[in-house]
């Protein structure tokens, strides 16, 4: 389909340009905005692959939540642009090394899939049952909660530990802080909240 090819090249080009701009943008906030564009066009590529569930998850999780927090943090930081660029030459070799590794891995994966076929051809049918029409969310669910249920639960546990760790690290109780306890306020009645006195003239209410 010509339309699909046009969409694919457009999305890929946008992803690549956005990815390049993430690195090259002078302003860190602009970097994050380019990163969001890259995420978004990657989601578009997922839709072209027919993986609409993954595409929506990518947008909800990465674009809608993670990148918002990124933007949040970067906007609040007072970044010194010149200091940021000073170590560029120094870090260049390490960055290049990582880039080469990544590229090698991706080429390896791509050639394996191209020559031997994707792993899903061997694994999915057992879980998905007969060749009935399943939407992509159902397929993922069937594989995730049957063949890979232990890995899935383990991943959830790791995330839980990370979350609790973050809370433990940042939670501190300062002494002497007056906290608002909503329950106490809601449970207040006229009886406990006020006192009706009838002072005599010239004597005040005492105390």
């Amino acid at each position: 389909m010509a339309l699909q090819a046009i969409a694919f090249y457009l999305m890929s080009a946008v992803t690549l340009v956005a990815g390049f701009c993430v690195v090259s943008a002078r302003n860190p906030v602009h970097s994050v905005l380019w990163l969001i564009l890259a995420f978004f066009s990657a989601a578009g590529l997922f839709v072209l692959l027919g993986a609409e569930f993954l595409a929506m998850l990518l947008v909800v999780v990465y674009v809608g939540a993670v990148a918002v927090l990124f933007l949040f943090v970067v906007m609040m930081l007072d970044v010194d642009f010149t200091a940021l660029r000073q170590g560029f030459a120094q870090y260049m070799p390490i960055g290049l090394l990582i880039a080469v590794f990544l590229a090698a891995e991706m080429i390896l994966v791509a050639t394996t899939v191209a020559t031997k076929g994707a792993a899903k051809d061997n694994l999915v049918p057992a879980a998905a049952g007969s060749g009935s029409e399943l939407s992509n969310a159902e397929t993922i669910g069937r594989v995730l909660y049957t063949d890979y249920v232990y890995f899935f639960q383990a991943a959830g546990l790791v995330l839980l530990v990370a979350m609790i760790g973050a809370i433990v690290l940042t939670l501190r109780h300062k002494p002497g802080v007056k906290r608002q306890i909503i329950m106490d306020q809601v449970l207040r009645t006229p009886k406990t909240g006020m006192r009706i006195v009838n002072p005599k003239s010239g004597e005040g209410i005492g105390e």
Partner: peptide
């Protein structure tokens, strides 16, 4: 097929305009 997720995704991106 993922209509409701689409709506959720788009409405979660609405925050960018404001930020």
């Amino acid at each position: 097929n993922v209509g409701i997720l689409y709506l959720f995704a788009v409405s979660s991106m609405g925050v960018y305009g404001i930020i």
